[in-house]
Amino acid sequence: MKLSEKPKWQELPLAASIVEPATSLEYKTGDWKTLKPVVDTTKCIRCATCYIFCPEAAYEENEEGYFLPNYDYCKGCGICAVECPAMCIQMVEEEAE
């Protein structure tokens, strides 16, 4: 059941339970943000601090071992930018991209 489908009460699973796993992936929270983190891979030391601290688990490791945010789920909280020991993450206004 997807929220967007707005089920009738007869269609709602028992007690509004979510009976399919991992449906939260369909709920993209990326449009909540006003600032987005931009990683400068030339300064990045691939320490994975951003990956560990991200409360949304939005950072993903790429083939070269760099950790980059998935903007579909990043809410723009900025924790990664504060915690990054290499100071390689800038919070940038989305419009100003």
Partner: peptide, 22 residues
């Protein structure tokens, strides 16, 4: 896997209560 007792956003809560009363 099933999630019991998730958040019932305003689009869901009303229908959940009707289901319970029924």
């Amino acid at each position: 896997p099933v999630t019991f007792g998730p958040v019932g956003v305003p689009d869901i809560y009303t229908e959940a209560k009707k289901q319970q009363d029924f």
